[in-house]
Design a protein around this nucleic acid. Structure first.
Lengths: 342, 342
DNA sequence: CGCAATGTTGGTAGCGCTACCACAGCCGGC
DNA sequence: GCCGGCTGTGGTAGCGCTACCAACATTGCG
């Protein structure tokens, strides 16, 4: 006779304990918990009573092993301290909190290598779905996504050929819209100021450039960027740099709101009148943009909704009814404010 | 003869495949991967070659099931969009990225019930360690933590009787220090402005109150709070409310930097001179505090370091050598700036 | 009334991995 | 030369759960 291993788990109740208590087979307990509709009302009640009494919680690891599918959403974003992604992630969490799915979050730190490593790692868990930021995966990453064997949602951008599904908006269009607005209001020497030029920033810059070229006003010296991580203080420094290069600057499209705020503060310090001498447009429309003095024109993006929608699409796909629209463009909105009101 | 189940996992290589290829037993492969020191140099090389060739990645679920221990850190914070926790979480991720541990992140949304639910859920995974924000768990939550069977680190605060380990700083002391600074510089009618008064905010308020009472200047009408979530725009509204209640207000200790920024903007709009008419102190010392115009005095907290340190302590405990100091106080720092320079 | 279709339940055999032993070979000490 | 102790390796038996199939009862229909 073999002696049972000494309950390595520390004596937590198992499905067998519940089954014994309820006087049914283990598999019936399993079904009662996962597909209550397939178990008779009577047994379901008995089982529920046993579960409650024992305080049974299914072991997700055993479940994943047996079913070859973990109840986990893998989520890959470049950074969490970036307010933008924090909002997206919040949308994801909120829409997933009532479901049995857990979230496995990873930071790529804007690195393709790191993204590959994490996808490899996440893949080994057989996640129920993957949500990844951006469309600029390496060839290896793209292959990993295609072979993940689960719904994949790319977020934050649009493109015609996603791996699977996509929710986002056009960074090119939004960059162009911001620049066009400055042109329409009458600014001419419009600079682009940006830090950490990730692919999405590059597309906004391309939109800026397109607008400026269409107006016959493009000049490469109007562009000021840095590889450093974006921050408010960096916005201040970058405006100084931009003005040093181009003292006649009369407007700036800032790659994000942090930069824009830094620019505004530097204008205060240098007694530059906003919007009279310089017009400012930010990007993302954080709450503070409408509060600042003067309030700052910005491009509002639907970050929370992107996260929420990505989850909704993934859940639909898991449930068997893939959304008809594989590609969702949530657009953006230009919020006109005092910083460009001249 | 039983036909093998059709590789539900989709044909990924298993440890048995690696063992066969390397001509060794499965258990030796397992050891070579987890404790290379216990396997001879020769076999280790052969096994590594087989692993590389097959692209073998261990299944974390099977591993967790067999060893009754998942390589997962459970992390519980109230909110991710709060910049403060985003920084803490970054510190946690950064210090854990080279280890085999994954992170399971949960939001309590400042709710004790939600915290209980998540601890229950996380516990079912048998995590390697738990990191939770705060010391104000419900009785149930505290019991769950005590019985988690793994190292537990509470973060963000100090107290004499943590569940297990603790890293943080004193909110009471920091609130008192901020208020004392305002008093020292000469402000008298000093208000407290705060949103979302979680337990940490309450302690800062208590520190404020202690300082004001010690100076014989406390007045409950100086306190303005709201249950709403903190934001820059809320800071602006709260200052209006505070001034309506107490027009002679000459200083404010803001519960966080977002509020402080909102207050500053409202002062600009209302042509209130900072620091002459009103002094402002923020809390957390976000980057923008030193950039704003005028720059804002704030209490610097070591958020990233709290996350980093919590992980270091948990790893040490997992490794068998619990840190001698179970309680670590990382302190805080008053950053004097223009907003209180009069 | 017979038979297929449907619905409900249970048994068995794993999922991929590691804990726990067993065992072989080697060392040094008495 | 025997014994205990080490080191390195492997076999076996699960971890807790679910996929798969079988068994049985019940129903509907010709």
């Amino acid at each position: 006779m073999t002696k049972p291993r000494s309950r390595r788990g520390g004596g937590r109740p198992t499905i067998a304990d519940v089954a014994r208590k309820a006087g049914v087979g283990a598999i019936t307990v399993s079904r009662a918990l996962r597909e209550p509709g397939r178990v008779s009302e009577d047994l379901r009640r008995q089982i529920q009573a046993a579960v409650d009494e024992l305080g049974y919680v299914p072991d997700p690891n055993a479940r994943a092993l047996a079913s070859a599918r973990a109840e986990v959403f893998g989520v890959l974003v470049p950074s969490l301290t970036n307010n933008v992604f924090a909002e997206v992630v919040r949308g994801i969490y909120d829409n997933l909190s009532d479901s049995p799915f857990r979230i496995q979050l990873g930071h790529t730190h804007y690195s393709g290598m790191e993204e590959e490593r994490l996808l490899q790692l996440f893949g080994s868990q057989r996640p129920a779905a993957l949500i990844v930021a951006g469309i600029d995966q390496t060839a290896t990453s793209r292959r990993l996504l295609e072979n993940a064997g689960c719904p994949v949602v790319q977020i934050m951008e649009t493109c015609p050929d996603p791996v699977d599904m996509l929710v986002g908006f056009s960074h090119f269009d939004s960059g162009r819209a911001a620049t066009r607005h400055l042109l329409e209001v009458g600014y001419r020497k419009i600079g682009f100021i940006g830090a950490r030029m990730d692919p999405r920033s590059q597309r906004r810059l391309a939109g800026y450039r397109a607008a400026m070229e269409a107006a016959g006003l493009f000049d490469p010296r109007l562009i000021t960027t840095t590889p450093m991580l974006s921050s408010v203080s960096l916005g201040r420094e970058l405006l100084r740099d931009a003005l040093a290069k181009m003292p006649t600057l009369d407007g700036v499209f800032c790659n994000n709101d942090d930069i824009a705020l830094g620019v505004l503060f530097e204008c205060h310090r240098a007694s530059i009148d906003v919007p009279r001498q310089i017009g400012i447009v930010g990007f993302n429309d954080l709450d503070m943009m409408q509060v600042s003095f003067p309030s700052i024109t910005s491009i509002r993006t639907h970050r929370y909704e992107i996260g929420r929608r990505a989850v909704a699409m993934a859940l639909a796909a898991i449930g068997g009814n893939r959304p008809v629209e594989r590609i969702v463009d949530l657009g953006f909105e230009l919020m006109r404010r005092e910083s460009t009101a001249r």
